[in-house]
Structure formats: structure tokens, C-alpha cells
Amino acid sequence: MKIDEIISVVPYDKQWTILFQNERVNPFKAFKEGAIDIQHFSSTPIQGMFAKSIIDILIGVKTLDLKNSVANNLIQLGYEGFGEMDGTGRLYFRKRQEHAYDLAVVIWNSEQPINNLLIRNYLRNNPRIAKQYSERKLSAITKGYTTLLFYSDEKADYVSNILEQAKKS
């Protein structure tokens, strides 16, 4: 089980919102009362945006010390866990079956989910910026950044700039 994987970027698919709505019940079942909120984030909830065909789900919790039952429930649902990502305060789980899902488990109302949702909402409200970001993603793929880690690194500064713009708006 390794985190890096081959990725591609595809045009917006209106099914992504439906896939999120259908899948969001599973983490709620796994976390039971431990989930404060579950949100669709990253690029797939942004109409017209090019994205990896992976539904990103943000799960807000009070603590990252998950009970074994939660992890076991997620495994039974087809998710694999990777633990905390680079000291970011985010636990990462993914499911790769007929459809692909990534779960980001974070402390609710901490900086990370606030920033992720700020970017999502900013891009939803600024289609011109979303189009520029889509072009940046396609450029990264064209340049050969076709694995998750290289692709993420390639666009990290650009995403930071979008966050700064979003904070100012």
C-alpha cells in the first residue's frame, strides 16, 4: 500500500456531486456521533472545473485519535488508511473501487478545513480563476506530472496563491 499513484485530470462531471451525496452516508456510519460535519471539497464540487476523478470528502471531528472501531468501519467500507499526512493534522483514507474517494479527517474549525472550504467557495464564486486553475492542472499533466505526489507539488504554490486571494475577498 503506497500513497503515490498515477493520476489524470478530466473535465467536470455533474455526477461528482451525486457520487459525493451517495458516499457521504458511509463515513457518517463509520464515525457515528464522532463526525461533526462532512463536506465535498477540492475541485470536484466546482462546476466547470477540471479535476482528478476522485471525490474528496472532508470530515470534521473533535479529535484525530480515532477509535479502532472507526478505522475498522472504514476498512469494511473499502477504505485504506494512511495515517497522518506529513504532520498536517489530517488523516488520509482512500477508496479505489468503481469510483474513487479520498477522505481527509481533520479537527473541525481548525485552519486546514477552514482554508480548504475557503478555496472551494472562492473558486465556485470566481469562474475565471477556476478556469485558470484548470489550465494550470492541465499544464502540469502535459509537463509529465502524472503521479499524485509530483502533481500536488507542482501546483502547491498556485493553490497557496488562490488561498491568499480567497482570504482577501
Rank of each mutant, 00 (worst) to 15 (best):
residue 91 L to G: 03
residue 86 D to P: 02
residue 86 D to E: 07
residue 92 Y to G: 07
residue 118 L to T: 08
residue 86 D to Q: 09
residue 105 V to Y: 03
residue 107 I to L: 10
residue 103 L to T: 00
residue 164 E to L: 11
residue 132 Q to D: 14
residue 52 K to W: 13
residue 81 G to N: 04
residue 70 V to S: 02
residue 80 E to W: 02
residue 5 E to H: 06
residue 87 G to S: 09
residue 62 K to S: 07
residue 161 N to T: 05
residue 130 A to P: 08
residue 83 G to M: 00
residue 10 V to Y: 13
residue 54 I to N: 12
residue 37 D to A: 10
residue 1 M to Q: 06
residue 54 I to S: 13
residue 22 N to K: 13
residue 136 R to G: 06
residue 166 A to Y: 11
residue 156 A to G: 07
residue 55 I to M: 08
residue 99 H to Q: 13
residue 92 Y to H: 11
residue 140 A to K: 08
residue 126 N to M: 07
residue 76 Q to S: 11
residue 141 I to K: 11
residue 88 T to F: 02
residue 144 G to S: 13
residue 26 N to Y: 08
residue 114 I to L: 12
residue 146 T to F: 03
residue 161 N to W: 01
residue 65 D to E: 12
residue 135 E to Q: 15
residue 72 N to Q: 11
residue 133 Y to F: 09
residue 28 F to W: 08
residue 130 A to D: 09
residue 47 Q to C: 14
residue 98 E to S: 10
residue 144 G to P: 09
residue 64 L to Q: 02
residue 91 L to V: 01
residue 39 Q to W: 06
residue 79 Y to W: 03
residue 30 A to Y: 03
residue 114 I to M: 13
residue 144 G to E: 06
residue 47 Q to Y: 12
residue 105 V to P: 04
residue 77 L to N: 05
residue 93 F to I: 00
residue 141 I to T: 12
residue 36 I to N: 00
residue 112 Q to F: 05
residue 3 I to C: 04
residue 48 G to P: 15
residue 22 N to L: 12
residue 50 F to Y: 15
residue 145 Y to L: 12
residue 169 S to R: 12
residue 60 G to V: 01
residue 124 R to Y: 06
residue 146 T to A: 02
residue 159 V to Y: 11
residue 125 N to R: 15
residue 82 F to M: 07
residue 29 K to P: 10
residue 78 G to C: 06
residue 34 G to V: 00
residue 40 H to C: 05
residue 24 R to C: 11
residue 36 I to C: 00
residue 152 S to G: 13
residue 153 D to A: 15
residue 63 T to C: 02
residue 58 L to Q: 04
residue 29 K to Y: 09
residue 10 V to R: 10
residue 38 I to A: 04
residue 86 D to N: 13
residue 166 A to F: 06
residue 72 N to H: 03
residue 94 R to Y: 02
residue 126 N to H: 15
residue 132 Q to A: 07
residue 66 L to F: 01
residue 93 F to C: 00
residue 135 E to D: 15
residue 97 Q to W: 05
residue 29 K to E: 11
residue 14 K to Q: 14
residue 98 E to G: 15
residue 50 F to A: 14
residue 120 R to Q: 06
residue 63 T to Y: 02
residue 38 I to E: 03
residue 35 A to Q: 00
residue 43 S to A: 12
residue 64 L to R: 04
residue 14 K to M: 07
residue 3 I to E: 07
residue 15 Q to S: 15
residue 116 N to E: 11
residue 114 I to E: 14
residue 61 V to E: 00
residue 50 F to D: 15
residue 77 L to M: 13
residue 72 N to P: 01
residue 84 E to F: 04
residue 166 A to G: 12
residue 117 L to Q: 14
residue 168 K to A: 15
residue 39 Q to K: 10
residue 78 G to L: 03
residue 77 L to Y: 05
residue 104 A to D: 12
residue 78 G to T: 07
residue 159 V to C: 14
residue 143 K to E: 14
residue 22 N to Y: 05
residue 124 R to T: 08
residue 69 S to P: 01
residue 93 F to T: 00
residue 87 G to R: 08
residue 135 E to W: 01
residue 82 F to Y: 13
